[in-house]
């Protein structure tokens, strides 16, 4: 066919990371993480200890689950769900109340998942019915939720000695018990998102809303499904949170937001939607959870860590921008 020789890849740009294919960014991220670990280990050999491993993996657990929830929203074109802190505390409060009532673990988990899903559904319903920007809606619902939670309670914690209290303090195979659900979630979600029909449609909606609609994919349905699922994952995170965090107040989850967003960006999830590999959240969350620990080993005063957190977000955004410019 006359066409064949002329329409070819000449105008196109090749793969971004030659030789590594799609796994290039993942390997780069893992490499940066390993360099950080190696450098700190050289400076302070006692960094490479089981204690450090526990400290880092505990920190990863809650952020990791929230990052999956956040990434699902971003990939499907919802940009960001800023209502995660309120959703987490709300689900956490339900979990605590169920624990106080002496309910067994499965009931606590179901209660948390259902509460989180309901929170996500409320957000999605407002977004879909009012046709509003998800960022604005979730910013507002987070604010409202926080204010309402302050009216509901001041401090809450799961009772000492209950199964969930133990769950937040024990280790399993040398790692925190609360770490395993996070790792499993990243694995499973990362596998299913690009390989299922619903997942691919969610990605399509994020990549090009008009195109998805023109191909018969329903935007409202996708949005409601994603926000509800994402909310349920926030509920899961709340189980890990109340299990491990002890007494908390309505504002106690706010500090997670920045880390979660930075993790999502650093993992290469496009905030514009349509692109993102959930598996990369593992090195991304791991890297960002390791940094504060290394700072302590390098002897930086604790107030510096807050400053550093801000820098990390800037770094993540800059890294993403660099990647986007290099991308075809």
């Amino acid at each position: 066919m006359a066409l064949a020789p002329t329409i070819d890849g000449k105008d196109a740009v090749g793969p971004r990371w030659p030789g590594l294919g799609a796994w290039g960014p993942a390997l780069a991220l893992v490499a940066v993480w390993l360099v950080l670990i190696a450098a700190t280990g050289l400076y302070r050999p006692d960094f490479l200890s089981h204690q450090t491993l526990l400290a880092v993996t505990f920190t990863m657990s809650i952020v990791g689950v929230l990052a999956v929830a956040q990434a699902l929203v971003a990939i499907s074109g919802g940009f960001l769900d800023l209502s995660q802190p309120s959703g987490l505390i709300l689900s956490g409060l339900v979990t605590v109340r169920l624990a106080e009532a002496g309910m067994p673990m499965p009931v606590l988990i179901l209660g948390a998942l259902a509460t989180g899903a309901a929170w996500g559904l409320v957000n999605a319903t407002i977004i879909v019915l009012a046709k509003l920007n998800p960022v604005i809606v979730t910013l507002a619902t987070n604010f409202i939720g926080l204010a309402a939670l302050f009216l509901l309670f001041q401090l809450a914690q799961v009772p000492r000695g209950t199964a969930i209290h133990e769950f937040g303090r024990t280790s399993l195979l040398g790692l925190p018990a609360i770490w395993w659900p996070m790792a499993a979630l990243i694995l499973v979600a990362g596998f299913f998102l690009p390989r299922t029909r619903v997942g691919r449609r969610a990605i399509a909606v994020g990549g090009n809303r008009q195109a998805a609609r023109a191909r018969g994919i329903s935007l409202p349905r996708t949005r409601i499904a994603i926000f509800t699922l994402s909310g349920a994952l926030v509920g899961l995170a709340s189980v890990l949170f109340v299990a491990s965090s002890g007494p908390f107040n309505p504002g106690s989850a706010n500090f997670l937001q920045l880390n979660v967003i930075a993790s999502v960006i650093l993992a290469g999830v496009s905030l514009a939607g349509g692109r993102g590999n959930l598996w990369l959240l593992f090195p991304s969350v791991g890297f960002l959870s390791t940094i504060p620990t290394t700072l302590v080993f390098f002897g930086l005063a604790s107030d510096w860590q807050l400053i550093f957190q801000g820098f990390i977000l800037v770094f993540a955004v800059a890294f993403d921008g660099y990647r986007a410019r290099r991308a075809p």
Binding site: R197, G207, N208, A214
Partner: peptide
């Protein structure tokens, strides 16, 4: 089937994924 001027392609997806957009084979 209509091909609009904007082509209704999802830029972040590959060719075959776009071909099967909304009609993914299980």
């Amino acid at each position: 089937e209509t091909v609009y001027q904007d082509l209704a392609l999802v830029d972040t997806m590959t060719a075959y994924q776009n071909v099967y957009l909304g009609r993914e084979e299980l």
